[in-house]
Amino acid sequence: MPDVDAALRTRPYRPRLYGEPTVNAGLLEYIRQWMGPDCPADFEIDLTHGAVDAIDRLLCAYLVAGDKVAVENPCFIGIINILRTLGMQALGVSVDAEGMRADELEEALRKGARAVILTPRAHHPTGCSLSAERARALSQVLARHSDVLVIVDDHFALLSRREYHSVIPADAARWALVRSFSKALGPDIRVAALVSDARTSRQLRLRLAPGISWVSHLLQDLVEAGATRPESIELMALAREDYARRRHMLEQALREEGISFLAGGDGLNLWIPLQTDDQAVSLALAQRGWLVRHGSSLSVQGSIRGLRITISNLEPAQCAPLARDIRRSLA
């Protein structure tokens, strides 16, 4: 993780008061240059307390309890919990190695989904990323449903090894691209950049007004320093390669044991699809000392069987024993 103490020494803290710009000028310009090329024209920039907070606020800005939302299936548990808390109905859309399936998204929109939440890279829990072809197909579907709120959760952007492919139609009416700083700079740096159309930004700012919520300028200082200092950029590059190395070692061990997995993944998770009782397999692994999450707990509308393995703290020496224990647990 980037050195927070060094960042504070580089940029001494200056107190801000209500009435000042809500986003630091330097951070605003960084986000504009970073995210602008991936967005439709005439966008606005806001900050939230992480990607999950951004998604919560976006849904509350336009939808009400009972509304339907199209999401990936399996789905990130944080999104599942948001929808449950808000009383909204999740419509599951299957994913494969190229990301969310366009035909199933079309079906979910026909069923009345008023919003779609999708992950362009490092999908949690499967690790899949959108291909250019799949992104075009999804964009074509969304262009036929211009009244739908499109939320793109690019949470792993700073650490991803995959190219970003946009699904947001050029003439989209309601859209938002969310990128978190927490994955790269640390969980305490709970800040996400949110770029959206002007109307959506106005809706958000009603909920981000001083006195209701406040994205700390101290955190903004740390984000700006952490994202732009050469030392931090080098650390992020090392982290990117380290995660890829851990994934490669586990994939190699799984292949040697004859265990199928979703290849070509990115991010912090690897997905093993199963045809058997995944809860029983996860319990058997727990008895052998391994903690994994079974797919049925991440499913939307029907059980998706599989195992999510988090690779971020998995050491290379652990990969072969883990793969062997997975094979034994499947027996």
Rank of each mutant, 00 (worst) to 15 (best):
R308V: 07
P273A: 07
V292H: 05
I309F: 04
R305C: 10
G267Q: 02
R288A: 15
I311R: 05
Q279I: 09
Q318W: 04
L270S: 00
I309G: 00
S260N: 00
S312Q: 13
G267C: 06
S299I: 03
P321F: 08
S282N: 00
A280H: 11
S260Q: 08
N313Y: 15
G258D: 04
P321T: 07
T276G: 13
E257R: 05
G302T: 07
Q301G: 13
A263C: 08
S312C: 04
D266G: 00
T276P: 12
L274C: 06
Q287I: 06
R255D: 07
R308T: 14
S297H: 12
A323F: 10
R308C: 14
R308I: 05
W290H: 09
L298M: 12
G265T: 05
L291K: 12
L307R: 00
E256H: 08
L298P: 03
S299N: 01
L262S: 11
W290M: 06
G265Y: 00
R308H: 10
I272R: 01
D266A: 09
L270W: 03
V281L: 02
R324Y: 13
L298E: 10
G295T: 04
G289D: 13
Q275C: 14
I304S: 07
I311Q: 01
I259L: 11
N269C: 05
V292M: 07
R293I: 13
A280K: 13
N269V: 07
A286M: 15
V292D: 01
P316M: 13
L285E: 05
S260R: 14
V300N: 05
Q287S: 09
A280V: 10
H294G: 04
W271D: 00
G289C: 14
P316N: 14
S296M: 13
F261T: 04
A320F: 01
S282M: 00
S297V: 09
D278P: 11
S282R: 01
I272M: 03
Q301M: 08
S297G: 07
S260T: 12
C319H: 04
I259T: 11
I272H: 01
Q301T: 12
R305F: 06
P321M: 08
A263Y: 11
Q318F: 08
L314F: 11
N313A: 14
N313P: 03
I304V: 15
C319D: 03
I272P: 00
D278I: 07
S282G: 03
P321Y: 02
I259R: 08
L268W: 02
G289N: 08
S312I: 13
A263Q: 15
S299L: 14
G258A: 07
R308M: 15
L262V: 12
S299Y: 04
S312D: 12
W290R: 05
L283K: 10
